[in-house]
Every structure is written in structure tokens, then in C-alpha cells.
Amino acid sequence: MTQLVTRSASPSATAAGPASSGAGASRFRGAGNYLALIPFHVYVGLFLVLPTLIVTIGSFQDQAGSLTLDNFKAMFTNEQFIGSFMKSLQLALITAILGAIVGGLLAWAVVRGNPNGILRQLVIAACGVLAQFGGVMLAFAFFATFGFNGLITMFLKNNLGMAADGSWLYSLAGLAVVYTYFQIPLMLIVFLPSLDGLRQEWYDASASLGGGAWSFWRNVGGPILAPSFLGALLLLFTNAFSAYATAQAVISQGCALITQQIACQMQSEVILGQENVGKALALGMIVIVSAVMAVYAYIQRRASRWVK
């Protein structure tokens, strides 16, 4: 028996001949099957899990490596840190809500068009680019539009004689505008599949039973879409909360947002005793984002229960 197990477990035995390649062998869950997954796990362990552990453990250590809670004390008492968290949370919340509403409407407009049309594919591809690969480049897009020499700024100055200088763009308000710019297309991409899942038959059935548009949306369409909408909103929230590139490009001085604050801490590890505060802030971000993602995953599971 022992011999059988070890034989089947070795990869060479699995590939030995017809006898071991039949249905029986393919259902056999030997340790050998798991061996094949080792490279993946080692890699992810080394470059994802280990960094996360370094952050987690480091945030409980002082620079000498002994256990301390001082980093967290600093995080919760220093107004600068609290302010950064609050700014990031606000920015994320506002742009997520704006993006979800506007992007949701845009998605609705796209869904009503031809499902195989070239226009739809163009919009989706464009949204994919703007939502996920923008970062620094989107900041430059806005400099070119609303910046000191931007298209709109120049237009207002030269043609309407307005005293526009574009400096608002380089503030948190400007950042909110730029963030919303990538939240809208992200919403479209995330929400479109749920809208595609709405069936004409549901609307027709509701109408034949005496329901108008309002009854349908209130009783059927709304409840079906609600979980996906909420899930998308959460995804947008974490997206904005985690963003660094755009913020850094728009507001390059200072440590306004929490992501920038962490970068500042990282680059100024000279301040004695503060070396690991950045790690505590990073852990704080992990906690917030993970909590939101957990809610997101739960909602997604509920949403997919109804709409297959």
C-alpha cells in the first residue's frame, strides 16, 4: 500500500503508461499533483506574501527590531497622518460615488446599443485604457486641458477674457476631477456585464403583468442590479484610495494623500525612530482595502446567485 502511494505520487509513475493514465489515475489526488503548483506558490510567496509580511511585522518593530506599538501610536496621534487618511478617504468616496453614477449611466447607454457593434468595442477599449493604464499620463492630459497653458485655460483667457490660470488643478479639487476621469470608465467596465445580464424577457414579463417602467425598475431591475452597483462602487473606492501615480503627478510637492504620505516616509527614513511608521501606515491601508474588498467579494457572491 505504501509502495503504491509513493509510486503514483512520483511524476514519472504518473506518465509511465496507459495503466496509470486512465480515469482512475486522473482522479487520484497524490502529493505529486500538488508538487506542480510549487513554483507558483514560491513565486507569489517571495514577491507578494513576503513583502506583505515585512510590512506587517515591521510595523510592530522599532529600528532596533524589538517589539513596539509606537508606530501605531504615531499613526493615531500625528495629525498629519490622520489628515492624510481622511483626505484619501474623502477623495475616494466622492470620486467613487460620482464615477459610479455617471459611469453607470454611460454603461446603460452603451448596453442599449448594438451588442456587437464597433462603437461598443471602441468605447470599451477606450475605457479600458483610461481606467487602468492612465496614472501619470492622465495627469498630463489634464495639464494639457486645464493646466497653466492648457487648451481650456488658454481659450478662456484669450477668447473670453477670463482670469483663468488653472492653478485649481494642482489642488485636491483638481485631483478629484482627474480621479473622476478614470473612475467613470472603470465603472463602465465593471458594471457593463451586470447590465448585459438584464434580460428583455424580464421587462416584457413585467409589462405583460401590468407593470410600467417604474414598477419594473423598483421591483425587478433595481433589486437585481443593486448588489453589482454597490460592488462596483466599492471597487472604485479602493481604486481611488490606492492610487499614487496620478496624485504624485498632479500634486508633486507635499505628502497630501496617504499613498503620498507613505512614499514620503519611505524616502525620509533618516528621521530617527520613525523608520517603521511608514510600514504602520501601509498596514493601515491594507486593513482598510482588505475590509472593503471582503465586503465586495461577499456582495459579488450574492449578486451572482441571481444572475448566472
Partner: peptide, 24 residues
Amino acid sequence: VVEFLCLLPLAIPAIVIVVGIAPI
């Protein structure tokens, strides 16, 4: 498990990964 690990980077902001990976 594989799915969880693959989607994990969504829950760990890039900035956090940098902090942890800098020593590596």
C-alpha cells in the same frame, strides 16, 4: 487558493508592496 493568491494584489495597494519589497 490559486484564485485567492492571484487576486490578492487587488487588496494590497502597489504603494504597500513597494514598502515591503524595498528591502528585498
